[in-house]
Design a protein around this nucleic acid. Structure first.
Length: 268
DNA sequence: TCTTTATGGCGAT
DNA sequence: TCGCCCTAAAGAT
């Protein structure tokens, strides 16, 4: 269950495992059988991520993958075992295999179609070519909440529900504030923090956002483990005490997604 | 053996 | 704003 950091990590993993060499491409489940056949046996020329999209470049086409809410890749040493469950896509060479389950999107694109995907995305904090100013231009004019804007991939690419909740907490910002009420200085701090947090997330493969001075050990509280693998301030911690001030963390449905925040720490 | 839930996004209304 | 799509694991019965 992925935000942008996972897709960048996956691009690097595919490059390392399959880059520059022919790859067997198949669809054990059958739903992507025709597409798989078209690139089967071609070398993987390059792998890249753009927001939450993964692109695998073959000679004849770009393989475009979006994991959606519960898509997942599994890597392992070759030979791949007999398929268990629904495997949409399997990549394999002599050393390794990768299985893809449950993606929202798994399709072949032309270069022009790939560029069209890029064109409709906002800047991605994990890409060197990102222009945060583009996002700010839209946020500064918007009456939508900053919570909704951070999740809008046309505004900002790669940020999901966890990074949204956590970056707003780290900057003390009430998620319900309108984008146009943010200051340019606040936006710059949010962007820089996202770049840093997501780079670390891509490197270690999970989302850790709790500053050293706020860890349970540093605060003299019993240790704890968040059930999604990382250490966070508010995401999925509704009803539990805020790590900083002890106030109960709140949650609500916000544009059909779960929003979490601390009503005391996030009053700006 | 059910029902629910999830770090997403699309199109219809 | 709603329903719907993709799948697996956790929780309820």
């Amino acid at each position: 269950m992925p935000e942008g950091h996972i897709l960048h990590r996956l691009a690097a993993q595919h490059q390392a495992a399959f880059g520059g060499r022919p790859v067997a491409v198949a669809s054990p489940q059958g739903r992507f059988a025709e597409g798989a056949k078209l690139v089967d046996g071609q070398p993987l020329e390059r792998a890249e991520a753009d927001g939450k999209h993964l692109f695998l470049g073959f000679a004849d086409a770009w393989l475009h993958i979006h994991l959606g809410l519960y898509g997942v890749f599994t890597f392992g040493p070759a030979p791949a075992p007999a398929p268990v469950g629904l495997i949409r896509l399997r990549l394999e060479n002599a050393e390794q295999y990768a299985d893809l389950r449950g993606p929202t999107t798994c399709e072949l694109l032309t270069p022009a179609e790939k560029e069209a995907v890029h064109a409709r995305l906002g800047p991605d904090p994990l890409r060197a070519d990102a222009e945060p100013e583009r996002a700010w231009q839209r946020i500064a004019r918007s009456r939508s909440t900053i919570a909704a804007l951070l999740m809008d991939q046309k505004i900002l690419a790669g940020v999901g529900n966890v990074y949204r909740a956590e970056v707003l907490f780290r900057h003390g910002i009430d998620p319900h504030r309108a984008g146009r009420d943010l200051t340019a200085a606040e936006w710059q701090l949010i962007w820089r923090d996202l770049v840093e947090l997501m780079r670390e997330g891509a490197a270690i493969g999970r989302i850790d956002t709790v500053r050293p001075e706020h860890t349970p050990e540093a605060m003299g509280r019993p240790p704890r483990v968040d059930d999604h693998g990382g250490e966070v301030y508010v995401y999925r911690r509704a009803g539990q005490p805020c790590l900083v001030c002890g106030t109960e963390v709140r949650t609500e449905q916000h544009a059909a997604r779960n929003l979490f925040w601390c009503p005391r720490c996030q009053r700006r």
